[in-house]
Design a protein around this nucleic acid. Structure first.
Length: 438
RNA sequence: GGCCCUAUCGUCUAGCGGUUAGGACGUCGCCUUCUCAAGGCGGUAACCCGGGUUCGACUCCCGGUAGGGUCACCA
């Protein structure tokens, strides 16, 4: 038996930015379609002329592109450009007396087009929620258009889904209650029903729907914040879905391979940025230095970019961040200053506990003499030269003065790493500088 | 309020009649270390409540409760 090709759709209305919630809906549509060797279609539902804005269309397109969620239709249709199509169906419904022009007492205009509600029970099978039933009596004769050339959402969505052969309507749970009236319209028009799939909502920390107030910002802001698109995709997929295994880090291709609607959760999920940070760090870890520099370029301080041992420095930076913008914080806290300029220090800081200046001075001199003989001035080379002496003399007694001499800070990467990054010449200059001070 | 959906650690989740209720994030402790980070190890912490059904319920059914969604000439 030939299976019909799976076709899903992502139909945002360009009346707001492409936020986390929309992104996840798009992602689930995409993953499901691709998992079934199907297609996902993008269209803009811009029948609301007042609220639809080109800037939002741009933001949605940009966001989808950044995340790597690709639609299969070459051109993206806009409902505002298909008014003739809806008009035809509207006229048909009116001719059949399924819809009628209604005189209005309230509202913005004198007459609108209403659907004659048969006041029946509509039952549909949701792939995630199983059987859902509504009594349409509650809906009354609902409006399907403001005029023949001004159709409203419920009509346009049904027509477009039909005309593009959508097999699965995967959308947020907030659309469950819209489904009954859409089925009413679709049956009146003689269209086949798609399969409905209502996925749980992403919730703010207080379990309310994501709103402008918390979290419903453009996905592009996550780019600004230094997140990787693959991390956002990975995290979003895990919000409401799980692979059934303990695997947590996924590439887009892996998600496509494993995604199934059967494993989608029923209840809403709270968005947790700490877990996102963790996932982002994992994805950051997969990048080569070149790739990392490429995406972190704007965050890396200019004066660090020409640093002689930039690769080594980069490695120690990468260890300490969750997202690229964290580099800004490290820079603000002066974590990089000592790489560029010789650090501020005073004798009291250099001395380990209460050992006194002369002990510190003697130890540093010994370190200098040991390092002068080192040819391979790498972490390993420096460590093997200094470690035995530090073990013998007491690690703190040797390492602490060394750290302060090199960085001027109490907290820093370990002195061997720092020495490797600074290089032999600069390391010895700094050690001698400290010796002078003592 | 009507209608609809949902309900396992703080959060994301596994579980699909019999488990010491598992994992991850977070948190806490220990190890590592001169310090921070990373890493390793370990601890903490959950089945909303009440009835059934059953030899046996986190799991099935019913009822409460709680949370959410939706009730536009928005989508």
């Amino acid at each position: 038996m030939a299976m019909t090709k799976v076709i899903t759709r992502f139909p945002p209305s360009p009346t707001g930015y492409f936020h986390i919630g929309s992104a996840r809906t798009a992602l689930f549509n995409y993953l499901f379609a691709k998992n079934n060797n199907g297609e996902m279609i993008l269209r803009f539902e811009d029948t609301d002329k007042e609220r639809s804005k080109p800037e939002y269309e741009k933001d949605i397109l940009e966001g989808l592109n950044w995340l790597g969620i690709k639609h299969d239709n070459d051109s993206v249709p806009k409902q505002s450009e298909r008014l003739g199509v809806y008009r035809k169906h509207l006229q048909e419904l009116i001719n059949k007396d399924i819809a009628y022009i209604s005189k209005e007492k309230e509202g913005k205009r004198d007459e609108v087009i209403r659907f004659r509600n048969p006041n029946t029970k509509i039952k549909f099978n949701d792939l995630i929620r199983e059987e859902v039933e509504f009594d349409t009596t509650d809906l009354g004769d609902f409006i399907i258009a403001k005029s023949l050339d001004e159709p409203v959402y419920h009509l346009t969505v049904v027509v477009d889904d039909y005309e593009t052969d959508i097999t699965h309507v995967i959308r947020g749970e907030d659309h469950i209650s819209n489904t009954a009236r859409q089925i009413l319209i679709l049956e009146a028009l003689g269209f086949a029903r798609p399969i409905y799939v209502h996925i749980p909502l992403i919730l703010a920390a207080d379990r309310s729907k994501l709103s402008k107030r918390h979290g419903a910002v453009s996905i592009m802001e996550y780019k600004e914040m230094g997140y990787l698109p693959e991390a956002i995709v990975n995290y979003l997929a895990l919000l409401g879905w799980n692979p059934g295994t303990e695997k947590e880090i996924f590439s887009m291709d892996e998600l496509i391979g494993e995604f199934s609607l059967g494993k989608v959760q029923k209840g809403g999920a709270v968005f947790n940025s700490e877990k996102l940070d963790w996932i982002n760090k994992k994805h950051l870890g997969k990048l080569t230095n070149e790739e990392f520099v490429d995406i972190a370029r704007e965050h890396i301080p200019e004066n660090l970019k020409n640093f002689p041992n930039f690769d080594l420095l980069l490695a120690s930076i990468r260890e300490r961040i969750n997202k690229t913008s964290d580099i800004d914080k490290l820079a603000e806290d002066g974590e990089f200053d000592f790489y560029i300029d010789e650090p501020e220090m005073n004798p009291e800081k250099i001395v380990w506990k209460d050992e006194g200046n002369s002990a510190a001075k003697e130890n540093l001199k010994k370190v200098v003499s040991l390092l002068e003989r080192v040819d391979d001035f790498s972490y390993e080379g420096v460590k093997s030269a200094v470690q035995p002496f530090a073990d013998e003399r007491g690690r703190g007694s040797v390492m602490h003065p060394m750290r302060i001499a090199l960085t001027g800070r109490d907290k820093s990467p370990d002195p061997f790493t720092i020495a490797g990054i600074l290089g032999k010449e600069q390391t010895i200059i700094r050690l001698n500088r400290a010796i002078e001070l003592l």
